[in-house]
Design a binder for these strands. Structure first.
Lengths: 231, 231
DNA sequence: TCAAAAATTATTGTATACGATTTTATCATG
DNA sequence: CATGATAAAATCGTATACAATAATTTTTGA
């Protein structure tokens, strides 16, 4: 039996915090004190710090000197730039996939959409995450890992933006649009694929309105997300 | 007088290591032991670790579990993907600049090329860095900070690739090509600008051949780059 | 002499300790 | 009562200590 190399704790913390942010359990502006997080996850500040550092590099977290880390609050200008770049990169993804996506690739997209359908309307946070992961999966199928990494980063930052500037994350329509994208790829129709992706991203970006603030209960959130760690 | 907030030590270490890698004073595969670096810079392993973490996130450094950090050694496949993405993004940069670059922007590009000319042939490492920074400057002038960040990252990773796969970093020709790019932007000629950028990047990518290994003297390099820190 | 096992060394991974900085609370004073 | 100074608390930034792991060397037995 191969001795599976266990994941380093900093990565676990990183992963869980990231998911909590993307699923909007931790909302923009929320404080992220090192000792509170470390205590919940049963690790020292050292490893929490590493995780926060990575999240900061990805733009999901902002840290202020001697003040600590906070879930990032992108300005409207940043939000526009992020959407712009996402658009540029996802267009590139589609262009590549229309040319050379494999049957296996199409199947994995189908499988993902089926998953999305399954949680449709049931679980808000999870459906938010799955909707984003559809785009990440597309980018991965492009075969260029750099492109995939950038898209993943931008998609996750978009979750943050929607949390700030849209009233509700109505991802119901998204599933149908995702199906349309798959169909266009299957048809090998570049114009159609590009048009649908443009519309889809436009729809996502269009949900930008102002939303009211809502306080988080950090401990409760961490307890929920930390279960995986202590178990 | 405004009390200038002094740079955190981890960022200094990050900056100096980054420059050492980009200027090829630390070559791909070189070991980066935490205590040796910390001793040279007069800081603890804690801050060295932070710097190495950031460099890893950018793809300039690879760390192997319980083995330590090394200057990254991109494979040929990774190298191709990086060049591809750089091409995609820089094309986007040019497209935007042709439309809306300001006179001030053009001036700053001119000023940079003058600098490049000044060190032409004199100092290898510095001219390598300046050649890259021309592209970073272009991306910054696009006004999209995300785009600028990605281009900066890719440009620096290209230095690494050239260090591995090209015999010599003959950046002499680059200065002229940079001038041509500026001219095309001045003329607001999209087709020409794009063609020149394509040729330029093709020329850069074309220098990919196999190079012999060469051992580094870590201490000497760090002493050189660390002067700025201890002073 | 060679190979395998054991011991040694070197280096990383994590926790903890302590000083520094910022924020908050307290209190005196106009 | 407002306000500014001072003290207290909370939190971060960095150094250091120790445990864990991997690499290296030495030892041992055939």
């Amino acid at each position: 039996m191969t001795a599976e190399p266990t994941e380093p704790p900093s990565q676990t913390v990183y992963r869980l915090l990231r998911r909590a942010i993307i699923e909007q359990a931790l909302r923009p502006g929320a404080r992220l004190p090192e000792d509170a997080i470390g205590e919940q996850f049963g690790v020292s500040r050292t490893v929490v710090r590493q995780a926060l550092g990575r999240l900061e590099a990805e733009g999901l977290v902002e840290t202020r000197r001697n003040r600590g880390a906070f879930v990032a609050e992108p300005t409207l200008e940043e939000a526009n730039q992020i959407f712009e770049m996402r658009h540029v990169l996802e267009r590139e993804v589609i262009e590549r996939l229309v040319k050379r996506i494999s049957v296996i690739g199409l199947d994995s997209l189908e499988a993902h959409v089926v998953q999305e359908e399954r949680v449709r309307g049931k679980n808000g946070p999870v459906s938010i995450r799955l909707a984003g992961e559809f785009h990440t999966l597309l980018a991965e199928l492009s075969g260029n890992t750099v492109l995939a990494r950038y898209v993943a980063e931008l998609v996750s930052r978009c979750s943050l933006i929607l949390a700030m500037y849209s009233r509700k994350h109505s991802s119901d329509c998204a599933v149908d649009e995702h199906r349309q994208i798959i169909q266009a790829l299957r048809d090998r129709d570049p114009a159609k694929a590009r048009r649908i992706m443009d519309e889809h991203l436009g729809a996502v970006a269009g949900r930008a309105e102002l939303a009211e603030e809502k306080e988080d209960d950090l401990e409760a959130v961490l307890a929920r997300y930390g279960r995986e760690m202590t178990a």
